[in-house]
Structure formats: structure tokens, C-alpha cells
Design a protein around this nucleic acid. Sequence first.
RNA 1: ACAGUCGGACGGUCUGUCGCCGUUGCCUGUAAUAUUGGUAAAGGAGGAAAGUCCGGGCAGCACAGAGCAUUCCACUUCCUAACAGAAAGCUGUCAGCGAUGGCAGAGUAAUGCAGAAGAAAAUAACCGCCUCUUUGUGGGGUAAGGGUGAGAAGGUGGGGUAAGAGCCCACCAGACGUGCAGUGAUGUACGUGCUGUGUGUCUUGGAAGCUGCAAGUUCAUGUAAACCGGUGCUUGAGGGUUGCUCGCCCGAGCCGGAGGGUAGAACGCUUUAGCCGUAUAGUGAUAUGCGGAAUAGAUGAAUGACAGACACCCUAUAUGGGUACAGAACCCGGCUUAUAGACCGACUGCUUUU
RNA 2: GGAGAGGUGGCAGAGUGGUCGAUUGCACCGGUCUUGAAAACCGACGUACUGAGAGGUACCGGGGGUUCGAAUCCCUCCCUCUCCG
Length: 138
Amino acid sequence: MEKKTFGFPKAEHLKSKTIIDKLYSEGQSVAAFPLRAVFLPLEKYDEKQPHATILINVAKKRFRHAVDRNLIKRRIREAYRLNKQPFINELERMKTKMAVAILYIDNNHSSTAILQKRMTKLLASILEKRQKQCNSSL
RNA sequence: ACAGUCGGACGGUCUGUCGCCGUUGCCUGUAAUAUUGGUAAAGGAGGAAAGUCCGGGCAGCACAGAGCAUUCCACUUCCUAACAGAAAGCUGUCAGCGAUGGCAGAGUAAUGCAGAAGAAAAUAACCGCCUCUUUGUGGGGUAAGGGUGAGAAGGUGGGGUAAGAGCCCACCAGACGUGCAGUGAUGUACGUGCUGUGUGUCUUGGAAGCUGCAAGUUCAUGUAAACCGGUGCUUGAGGGUUGCUCGCCCGAGCCGGAGGGUAGAACGCUUUAGCCGUAUAGUGAUAUGCGGAAUAGAUGAAUGACAGACACCCUAUAUGGGUACAGAACCCGGCUUAUAGACCGACUGCUUUU
RNA sequence: GGAGAGGUGGCAGAGUGGUCGAUUGCACCGGUCUUGAAAACCGACGUACUGAGAGGUACCGGGGGUUCGAAUCCCUCCCUCUCCG
């Protein structure tokens, strides 16, 4: 059963309200302007679940019109979709499942090229922080 | 031609790469039409999807009846499922040379109020004018003139008079009555001297049960039909009855405290008061008949990202720049607001041109 | 998505057709008291334009309308907050 490398199916969307609440209250954050990620490793390790579930959020305060918010969300989604593979592989190696919220923290639009660059950096820094934590806890 | 007014209709297209959503077919898989994964096909935002300002459909709850309140609408006729909307008209007023556009318009029988200013805000006499006279800081007449005000007893001119006044006359504005035209608002002719402004209460006619798809229905998960206090069980606790009252109905629980569980799924969910074409009726909104096409239904929320080409616009050329407003959340009918560009039809013309 | 509530000096908060550019409290400024400060008391106190000054005009989220007259009533746009299974 080969999984697609660039897909972003429904199972990878973060939907559960309980996990989201927990994520925002207990999760840790990492920034790579204009993006910010809040992430939380999950306690249960379920084989059927994907390794990372993602939530993308653009604040209404920053962009009043729905058209603008949709455009940014779509660009972020594309950036994640095209650059997620190294991140997923690493999580698979570490045997962790993770919930991640990606927030947009700028008041201006950003081009797709910039977002893609920033996305790779963001995902790398999440892994770095997670790695440190594991080491220190051991 | 140019400038403008009104109405209608449109609001990018194609190719490639990588994705998302539900539908259908096939394969996988199964006890099974469930579930999982794969694959193919044809689809996948708007004229305003927006604001949520009105009106419905739909859903749940409520609804014996009576009275009293409350809110909204208001020129006329007409359309509609309905409306505070649309259509065709009427009157007044403002803007424009004009086509045309904006705004206002139920009634006044009764009754209340009108700050400041002003003599007085409606049985009007401050100044002024005229007159009488017992010459007093007096009596009477007078709404033409002054000043105040949004508004001062319809307006202008003439006659008339002591001075004046619809007191009389002409013209103008309104009201009422009659005739004529019109379904009607209203217009028009004649007659009657009938004539202050604004705004409440009120009157007349019409409408309104409440809550909204987070409505509501079903399933899953999970426990606690447990514990403490108060009150009640036909001598009626408590509840429903639309805002209130009467009256009526239900009938064994109800209120408070401290705590426990779930925050998932499915249905509702898209085929209609809808759209297109055409014929007939109507000035028109619209109605009726016939024929035709139909594929968004997501739910931390899909309908895209990137690259290229074309098309259109701007600038003197392009190698340059630009292509609006804006994203469905149960569904429709309107209104309002935002909007680059561009098309069709009808009409208007002051200063313009032929 | 739907349903409501509100916007007034620097801040809070009254005013619901006429006396209102605006009452009250806090803050700010000046004075009294004190060696000094606080508290208390007294006084003054919005912004812009205009004017020598006295004063005048405009402003109650923005823009229209009704009215003789609007913070108040009506329409429309903007912003803020609350509620829902």
C-alpha cells in the first residue's frame, strides 16, 4: 500500500475539539515569520492514524475578508503539502504522533515561494525542539 | 460624432504539473448492499454568495374562549406565497436646458401642547392709525403699517371707509358642494367669501403566536433512576395559556446544593412559489399553456496552488503597467451597500460639430 | 450560521424632541493647609476653526432624511461586545 507523497487527505486534518483545546493550552510553539506553529505530541500511539495532523488558522482580526483568509490558508496548505515528506519520515523514525496548528502572524500577504521556504524551516525547528525535549527527559 | 438619462444583460478563456470535495461505475475487501484502500468518468461559489434590513417556505413548541393593551404598515389601482418589495399612474416639492431623478403624501370629528423671542401662538391691540371726550396714566373702533417668530387670521391690486377689514370686486392658491371624465388617487367647469402653522393623543382601514437548521429527529459513548437540604401529593406543589387580566387546561413532582458523563456520527441537505425557450393575455409587474435542460452540499469547513499562452485596457512606442468588488453554510423573493472593464436597446441636447 | 446589546470630554457614566456643547464622579491644572507630601476644602477645566478681545460657528461613531428645532425619531454604512447544541 503506497502512500502518496504530496497528498493532503482528510485524515490529516485536525478536527477533534478535545485535542485542539489541549493543543492550545499545553502545546509548545515555534516561530518562523510569518508563520507560527503550536505542536503537541500525542500520548496514544495508534498505527492507523497518520503521523501528523494539521490545523491551519488565519485570524479574522488580521484579514477581514474571507477571500483573503482563504487565499492564505490555501497557500499555507500547498506549502505544507509539498514539503511535509522529510518531516513525516523523521516522525516515523522517532515513533511519535503529533498534532500541529500552523498560524499566520503577519498582516500582509506573502508569496507562495516565501511560504514554502519558511515552512521547511518551521518543520525542521519543530523536530529540533522535540528532539531536545526527549533527550532532556531521558 | 460628442455629452448625458433610463432599462436590460455580462463580468475572462485555454494548456500543463501537483492537490482537495462529494456523486456514479469498476476493482479490492466482507457473512453482507456496511467499512477500508485503489482507479476511471462527468461535476464543484456569486451578481452581489456580503450586510442581516424586510418577507415567506420548512421545523419544533404553543393554540376552547373573552376583554384590554402593544408593535408595525398607510396617495390610488394592480402583482405576488408574502413583504416595509415590484409595476402602472396621481398630487406637492427640490435638482437639471432637457430625457429624467430624489424626497414627501390615510383622516382631522374630538382634544392637548407649542421653549426662547414677541403685545398676542387663537374669544389677538405693544407701537401706530381713526374717533369720542368729563382732557385723566380715560373710553371706543381698527389687523392696512412696524417689530418678533418656522408660523400672526389666505396673497396681489382696486373700490370702499372716520380709520380699517372678503365689507365688495378682479385675478391667483386652497376648502366644500354639484355636474362631467376616470376602476381610483385626481383632473376640470360652475357655484359658495368658507380660509393660520406645526405636532401629539386619537380616529379609520390592514397585518402580527414564539423560537430559529446551533430549529428538530435518530444513533453512539458514558454514568448516578445515586447523595444532602427544602417543599408538595386531590384540602393541589408546580407548569402551560403568546404582553396583561379573567377564564380554561395538565396533574406528581418541583426548587436549591455538591458532583458525574458526552463535545462524536447520520438524517435535515438540496428538484424547486426556481431556470431557459416559446405562444397567448396585459401599457406593465406578472399570469397561463406547451416544450426543454438540470449534477456544490462542505462541517476547525473542499471548490485550489504554481507556470505559460491568449484576450481586453492604459501610456508616445514597449521591453512597461493593469484586469474590479468579493467566497456558498437549510432554501427562496426583495431591499441596501461594494464593484475594473465592456455590450445591447430606448430617449434627451444648454454651451458643441456635420 | 443565527439572535441580541451598545458607541457621548483623557477615563467611567447620565441625558430619549426645546433651557444642552452637555450633569456627575475620577484624572489633569492652580490655590489654602504642611518643613514637604497625601487626604480634605476652594476654584478652574473638551477639541477644531475664526476673532485684537468679548465672543461666534461646528462637533454626541461616519453620511443622509423628518422637524421651526435632533445626542434623542427614521434610513444607511462602520466599529465593539454578548448569547446559542
